[in-house]
């Protein structure tokens, strides 16, 4: 018998990952209790949760700092990446001159640049620059690709109607590049968080009273494993929230026209 009552769409989507999550957490909790694993080796999920609640006065401000840095860096990366991509699309010379610089910054691991930045800048600024650097490149390269991927016939049509370069950019290149930009933004959003955390770790004690990564290091020194897990959970949640909101933005902007936003 096939079921006549179909579950609502959101439930069918949310159910499988929710089941996997619950199963994993249950297994974890059960193992910790069954084998009596001490909390300084592996805390149970419920202990992590209670630690999260108990240490909220420490962890939530730290989350705010890390998330603030991440979003600020992402915003700067969007402004810088899009502006440079537009410049690239207008002038081959600029592209040839500056693309290698952008690539060098991209392929040099951020964790290796961070110590240097920490010497030149104060901890907060150094973290911001690191997060910016990693988020910047995917946004730049995707947007530049998008601006260059305009349908040739459409570009001819704009030429036929004597559209100015500015109007062609606004009415043709920008919308054509939008799906590419949003793809870059999603990658950049995730990377900005990674960059911020990596730089906070590199800053270590210098980043005193700062973000979540600092709290992880601090808890590590004190062997406060449950708090380390709690901070880690917050970082994960922050990453998921960034990804989900950028995905929602993407779906909203591309909703009616782009293949990627199609219901299947």
């Amino acid at each position: 018998m096939t079921s006549v009552m179909r579950k609502p769409e959101w439930l069918r989507r949310a159910l499988p990952p929710a089941l996997v999550l619950i199963a994993t957490l249950s297994l974890w909790e059960a193992s910790v209790r069954l084998y009596a694993i001490p909390p300084y080796v592996l805390p149970s999920p419920t202990l992590v949760l209670t630690t999260l609640a108990a240490d909220r006065a420490i962890l939530l401000p730290a989350l705010a700092v890390t998330l603030g840095t991440t979003l600020e860096a992402l915003a700067l990366a969007v402004i810088g990446g899009v502006a440079l991509a537009v410049l690239f699309s207008q002038s081959k010379w600029v592209e040839r001159a500056f693309l290698p610089v952008a690539i060098v910054l991209q392929v040099t691991p951020i964790i290796a640049i961070a110590p240097l930045l920490l010497i030149y800048l104060d901890a907060r600024a150094a973290v911001l620059v690191c997060a910016f650097l990693v988020a910047f490149f995917p946004i730049l390269s995707n947007t530049a690709l998008g601006l260059a991927s305009v349908d040739r016939n459409l570009s001819d049509l704009f030429a036929l109607y004597r559209a100015s370069g500015w109007r062609t950019l606004l009415l043709l290149r920008a919308p054509a590049a939008l799906p590419y930009f949003l793809g870059g933004l999603r990658i950049g959003g995730g990377l900005a968080l990674v960059g911020a955390i990596a730089a906070e770790l590199a800053a270590g004690a210098a980043g005193k009273g700062a973000g979540l990564a600092f709290r992880i290091i601090e808890a590590g020194y004190r062997l406060n494993i449950p708090r380390m897990f709690a901070a880690l959970a917050l970082i994960s949640l922050a990453g998921i929230a960034i990804f989900a909101s950028l995905a929602a933005l993407s779906a909203r902007l591309l909703g009616r026209w782009h293949e990627s936003a199609l219901e299947r």
Binding site: N153, L154, L157, L172, P175, A176, L178, W257, H258
Partner: peptide
Amino acid sequence: FQEPTLMPW
């Protein structure tokens, strides 16, 4: 043109 060449957006 050969294709409709519409702006999909």
